[in-house]
Nucleic acid binder design. Sequence first.
DNA 1: GGATAACCGAGACGGTACGTCCGGTCTTACC
DNA 2: GGTAAGACCGGACGTACCGTCTCGGTTATCC
Lengths: 204, 204, 204, 204
Amino acid sequence: MVCGMTRQAPDAARRNAGSRSAILAAALDLVAEVGYPKLTVEGIAARAGVGKQTIYRWWPSKGAVLFDALLALGETPDGQPGSLPDTGDLAADLKVVLRATVEELDDPRYDASMRALSTEIMHDPELADRYARRLDGPLRDVKRERLRSAQRAGELRADLDLEVAVDLIWAPIAHRWSQRGPLTAGYTDAVVDAALAGLRRRRG
Amino acid sequence: MVCGMTRQAPDAARRNAGSRSAILAAALDLVAEVGYPKLTVEGIAARAGVGKQTIYRWWPSKGAVLFDALLALGETPDGQPGSLPDTGDLAADLKVVLRATVEELDDPRYDASMRALSTEIMHDPELADRYARRLDGPLRDVKRERLRSAQRAGELRADLDLEVAVDLIWAPIAHRWSQRGPLTAGYTDAVVDAALAGLRRRRG
Amino acid sequence: MVCGMTRQAPDAARRNAGSRSAILAAALDLVAEVGYPKLTVEGIAARAGVGKQTIYRWWPSKGAVLFDALLALGETPDGQPGSLPDTGDLAADLKVVLRATVEELDDPRYDASMRALSTEIMHDPELADRYARRLDGPLRDVKRERLRSAQRAGELRADLDLEVAVDLIWAPIAHRWSQRGPLTAGYTDAVVDAALAGLRRRRG
Amino acid sequence: MVCGMTRQAPDAARRNAGSRSAILAAALDLVAEVGYPKLTVEGIAARAGVGKQTIYRWWPSKGAVLFDALLALGETPDGQPGSLPDTGDLAADLKVVLRATVEELDDPRYDASMRALSTEIMHDPELADRYARRLDGPLRDVKRERLRSAQRAGELRADLDLEVAVDLIWAPIAHRWSQRGPLTAGYTDAVVDAALAGLRRRRG
DNA sequence: GGATAACCGAGACGGTACGTCCGGTCTTACC
DNA sequence: GGTAAGACCGGACGTACCGTCTCGGTTATCC
C-alpha cells in the first residue's frame, strides 16, 4: 500500500494499523474542532490513545499527519483517481463538478484540514512538493484530461495551453475559498461561462 | 491617518511612535529571516528593543503586527491607492502589471510577509475581513476600475460581471504563487491572453 | 507630624494628605484581603484612586507603605506610647497585657499587616532598623519600664538583665504567633508563671 | 525514604534523581547569593540546568523547593534526629547547644534559607503545617526529651509544662534572630540562666 | 517454543514561547 | 508643581507543547 509521508526507516511491517488509523482520525477530528494552529501532536496522541513517540516515529510533524489523513480520506472509496464526467457538453460538466467541489468544502472536516494543509504548504517547500505530486497532481491530471477531451472534440481551441486553462477555471474557486469570499453555485457557473467565452467583446 | 489593526481600547494619543515603527520594522525583518512559523512576539520585542507588553497592548497577535507592517510598507510612497496604467490596450497593460507583480513577489521581505498573512487569514476570519477591507479591497477596486474602463471603451463584453473578470485574471497568479508553482512572465502573459480570448473554439 | 519611612526629598509640605491616608488605608485593607505576597503597589494605587507615581514618590516599596500604615494605626488614639498597667502585682498585670495582645492579633487587619512587616524585616536590614527604632523600640521601652518598676519594688531580682527578661516573656508569644501555633490565654498565663518562677526545681 | 513536600500525583518512581538534587543545590546556592525575594524559579532552573516544568512538576512554589532543600541539608549525616547532650547538668548542656545553634546560623546558606522558610511560613498555613510536622516537630521532640530527662532527675519542677519550657528557652533566640538583633553567646547563656532561675526575686 | 528485537503506552526531561502581571520610570494633561 | 492616568522597558510568572529520552509491557517474527 502506498503511504503518504511516513518515514521509511522503521520497520513498516510491524506497524500497528489500529494506532495509525486512530491517529489519522484523531487528527481530522481535532483540526475540525480547534483549528490547525491549536492542533498539537500531544493532543492528537491523547485523543488517539497513543504515545507521542508513536506519532514522532512515523511522521515528522503535525502537518505530515494531516497530509496522510487527507490522503486516507480521499482514498476511501476505491483508491482510483476516477475522472470527470464527460457528456460532450464541457460547460455543463464543469458546472456540475465545481458545484460538487463547493459543496464538499462545506464539510468542516474537509474544509479545516484542507485549509491547514494549504497553510503548511505555504511555508514548507518539501511538503508543497509532496502535495503537488501525491494530491494535487493526480487531480490536475484528471482536470487536464477532461479539457483535452473537449479540445479533441473541437469544443476548445486547438492551440490552448491546458495548464493555463485548468488554472483559469479552478484557481478562482480555490482563491476565493482561501480568502473566505462568498462561494456560491452562481459564482462557479459565472466563472465557467466567462472562462470559456472569454472577457473580450466579439465584434460584428 | 487610519491605522490598520491596532486595538482601540488604549489611549492611542499617548502612543510612542518610535516603538510602533521599531516593532513593525522588526516584524518584517524577522519574518524574512526566519519565516512566519518561527516568528515570535518575543523575538519581535527583543529585536525592536521593546517590552512584550507594548506589543500585546496594541496588537492581539503576531499576525496583526505583520498586517500593520504590510500596510505601512504599502503606504510608504504617498498613501494614495493609485491606478493601473491605461493605454487603451488592455491586454498589454495587464501584461505589464502582472509582470511587475511577479517581480515584486521576488523580494523576500514582501514574499515572506504576504505568505505569512495569507496563512493567518486562512485560520482567522476576523483578520480575513480586515484584509479584505483594508488591503485587498482597495487593490481590487483599482483592478475593477481598469476593467470597467476597457468595458466602456468597448474592449470587454458589456454584460460582464467584473468581479468574476478580476478573479479570472488575478486568481491564477495568486494561486500559483501560494502553491509555489513556477511563476514566469510567460505564464502571466498566457493567462491574460486566455482570459481575454476565452477557452472556447471560435467557429467559422 | 512624624512620618514613618517616607522619603525626605520631595517637598512634604505640598503633600496631599487625602492621598496619603487613602494609600495607607488601601494598603491595610488589601493586605488583609489578599495577603502580603499578593499585595502590589499597583493594587494599592488603584484601590486608593491614586497614580502609581504618587506612591513611588513618597515610599520606596510596598513594605514601607505598610510600615507607615501600621504606624498610623498605632498612633490613632493619641500619639503617646502609653505605659503598661502597674497594680503592684507583676504577674497579674502581665497576664492582662498578654491576653490583650493575643486578642489584638485576632483582628485580621492587624494580623496580616504585622505578619507582612515581620516578613519584610527578615530580608531587609534597613527596614529592620527602622522597625527597631520606630515601632518595636518604644514598645520595648514600655515593657522594660514595667519590669524595672517591679525590680525596684523588689518583685524581681536586682541583678536581672532586663533585655533578657523582656525577651523571656514576650518572645514565646511572638514566636508561637509567627509559627501559627495555638495562641491561647492559657498559654500566655503559663508563660508568665514559668518565666517568673523559673524552670528549676526549688529545693527543700 | 519519605520525601518532604513533593507533590504525589506524578509517578515518583520515574523521577530523575540527578535533576532533583541539582535543583535543591541550586536553590540553596541562589538563596544565599541573592536572598529569598530575588530567588526565582527561573533562576533555579537555569542554575540547575533543568527545565522550569521539571520544578513545577514536583513542587508548587519556590518555598516548597527550599523546604525540601533544607530537609535534605538536615538529613545529610544519617537521617536520624539524634538527641541533645545529657551530662546531668542541664544549664551547661543547654548553653553548649544554644552556642552551637547560634554558630550554625552564621552559615549564610543556612541563615538565608531558614530566613526564607520562616518568611514563607508566615503567609502559607499549609507550609507552616508541613514545617511543624517534618522539620520543627522532630527538633522540638528532641528538646522536650532533654527537659523531661532533667525533670526526671529532679533538676526541673515536676509540674512543669514542657511545651512552655521549650519555648521559654528557645523562643528568645529564634525571635532575636528573626529580628536581626545581636545574637551572642553571652545572650544565650543569660537566657538559659534566667529561664532556669526565674525572674522573680527569692525571698531570704 | 524460547529468544530477541521492534513496537507500543506512558510520561519525565531540557527547552522555547506563550500571554499576563507587576516593578519602577517617564510623560502628558489637568488643576 | 503636585497629581491621576497610564505607556513604557524589563523580567518573572505558571502553562502548553515541542521533540527526545527512557521505562516496562506486549507482540511477532526468527532461530
